[in-house]
C-alpha cells in the first residue's frame, strides 16, 4: 500500500492519478472517513482497520494537524485521530509520499 499525505489543495489526487494511474484501488479522503465515523458515533480505528483489511493499493489522507489546537473538542479529537491513524497507515505502508506544490516527496 502507498500512503499519500499533504495539506489541502496541494494536488494529492492529481498526483496519484498521474503517477499511479486511475485503475488502482484507492481510498481517497481518509481524513473525511475518520470524521464521518466520529460524527456518527463509530470508532474511527475500527473503520481504519476495515480499510486496511480491504487491502487498498493507495490511501490518500490530508494533513490536518499543523495549525492552532482547536477549542472545539470534536475538532480537537478529529485532528489528533487523523494524525494517529496516519501514523498507523504510514507504518504499514510500503511507501509514504507527502505532496508539496504537486510534487511527491518520498518520506518512506
Amino acid at each position: 500500500m502507498i500512503f499519500v499525505t499533504g495539506g489541502a489543495y496541494v494536488g494529492k489526487t492529481e498526483y496519484v492519478k498521474n503517477n499511479f494511474g486511475a485503475d488502482k484501488k484507492t481510498v481517497n479522503g481518509l481524513h473525511k472517513i475518520i470524521r464521518d465515523a466520529m460524527a456518527n458515533g463509530l470508532s474511527p480505528y475500527d473503520e481504519a482497520e476495515k480499510i486496511l483489511a480491504d487491502n487498498p493499493d493507495i490511501v490518500i489522507c490530508a494533513e490536518v494537524g499543523s495549525g492552532i489546537v482547536p477549542l472545539d473538542a470534536f475538532e480537537r479529537e478529529w485532528r489528533e485521530t487523523v494524525g494517529r491513524i496516519s501514523c498507523m497507515f504510514a507504518e504499514k505502508a510500503d511507501a509514504v509520499i507527502r505532496v508539496v506544490c504537486g510534487i511527491g516527496v518520498k518520506l518512506k
Binding site: 495539506g7 489541502a8 489543495y9 490530508a62 490536518v64 495549525g67 492552532i68 475538532e75
Partner: peptide, 22 residues
Amino acid sequence: EVGSDGVTYDAATEKYKKILGS
C-alpha cells in the same frame, strides 16, 4: 503553505486556499 491546519474556513477563504494551492 496554508492548507495543513485542518480548518474549513468561510467560502471566500476556502476559495483563496484552493486558488493558492492550484
